[in-house]
Amino acid sequence: MFDHTLDMCQSLPAVTVDKKWDNELRFFVGEKLFCMLSLEPPHRISFKCAPALYHKLISHPGIVPAPHLARYHWVQLNKEDALPTSELESLLHDAYELIVSTLPPYEREAISKLKISA
Rank of each mutant, 00 (worst) to 15 (best):
Y96I: 10
P65N: 07
R108C: 03
L53G: 00
L57F: 02
L25A: 02
H43K: 06
M1S: 03
V75M: 08
T102K: 15
E40G: 01
P42F: 12
E97H: 07
P84H: 10
F47W: 09
D22N: 14
L39M: 13
W74T: 14
L69W: 11
L98P: 02
S90E: 15
F27P: 02
V100S: 00
S117E: 04
L69E: 01
A118H: 12
L37W: 08
W74F: 08
E31R: 03
D81V: 06
M8H: 14
H55D: 13
I45D: 00
Y106K: 15
F34M: 03
I63A: 01
E24V: 15
C35W: 13
A118F: 12
P41C: 00
P61G: 11
A52R: 10
A70P: 00
P104H: 12
K20H: 09
M8K: 06
H43S: 01
P13T: 10
L88N: 07
V17E: 13
K19Q: 15
Q76M: 15
E24T: 15
R26T: 09
L88H: 08
E87D: 15
S38L: 10
Y106D: 09
F34C: 01
P41Q: 09
D18K: 15
K79H: 12
M1F: 04
M8S: 10
H43E: 00
S59T: 04
C9Y: 10
R26Q: 10
P51H: 09
D18Q: 13
P13L: 09
I116F: 14
L37Y: 09
Y72W: 05
G30W: 04
Q10H: 07
Q10E: 14
L103P: 03
F27V: 05
P105N: 04
C35D: 06
P41S: 11
H4Y: 03
W74C: 08
T5E: 01
A50M: 09
L98E: 07
Q10G: 11
A82Q: 07
P105W: 06
N78K: 14
F47E: 05
L39S: 05
M8F: 14
A95F: 12
P61E: 15
L103H: 05
N78H: 06
S59K: 04
P61W: 01
P61D: 15
E87V: 11
V100H: 03
L88A: 08
H73G: 03
P42K: 07
A66F: 04
L91P: 10
E24Y: 02
Y106P: 05
H43F: 14
C49Q: 00
